[in-house]
């Protein structure tokens, strides 16, 4: 079967929601079991006492990336059919910086805050409520932001195209960099005093 299955119409659209529920459950389970329902564990990445976020995040990214590249190579999946977020230069960077600010204050990101909500963390519930308000605020003030939001669209460009690199070379370098980072993280973790949480 050549993936992606739903865009290729191998699985009917009607299954969409059931699949969403199942994949979401996998997502939620892994996040919670890795400790992403605790904001102080997440924040450990930024102070060096617990790099679980960095480890899980980059391991997941390189696993999924390798899977896609290998499946594409074997002809089991058409990677060109995958959805790529369009790159609006200023909007993406501005959004990232605002989210980084929110991360440092709130200690969650949306996905992890839902995990916190599921196991009864009040701070996660407040974060989720804030999320709702923030999106409402953005939508109401959209005319103000529309200029930035829609400017400098580079389309669904890939990072290696932007750098003028071969895809496979970039993927290899990313894996090596991730492994290097894991070793660096272990090194830093040893030096920094543990924080009890």
């Amino acid at each position: 079967m050549t993936g992606p299955l739903i865009p290729m119409e191998i699985i009917p659209e009607a299954w969409n929601n059931v699949i969403a529920l199942l994949l979401g459950m996998g997502f939620g389970f892994v996040l919670e079991a890795s400790g992403f329902s605790s904001s102080r564990k997440i924040m450990g990445t930024f102070f060096g006492y617990d790099f679980v976020v960095l480890r899980v995040f980059f391991t997941a990214a390189i696993t999924a990336m390798s899977g896609i590249i290998y499946f594409d190579f074997m002809g089991w999946m058409d990677a060109s059919m995958l959805y790529i977020n369009p790159y609006y230069v200023t909007s993406a960077i501005a959004g990232g910086v605002i989210m980084g600010f929110g991360f440092a204050l709130g200690g969650f990101c949306p996905g992890t805050s839902f995990c916190g909500v599921a196991i009864g963390k009040f701070d996660a519930m407040f974060f989720s409520a804030g999320l709702f308000l923030g999106i409402l605020l953005f939508s109401e003030m959209y005319p103000l932001f529309a200029g930035i939001y829609n400017s400098e669209n580079l389309g669904d460009i890939k990072i290696y195209e932007m750098l003028g690199m071969k895809r496979n070379l970039f993927a290899f370098l990313l894996i090596v960099a991730a492994v290097g980072m894991f070793y660096g993280a272990a090194f830093v973790e040893k030096k920094v005093t543990k924080v009890e949480y």
């Binding site: 590249i69 496979n168 070379l169 993927a171 290899f172 990313l174 894996i175």
Partner: peptide, 10 residues
């Protein structure tokens, strides 16, 4: 992990 990456590279 690096072996998987090398596979991609070649």
């Amino acid at each position: 992990a690096v072996a998987v990456g090398a596979g991609i590279l070649f």
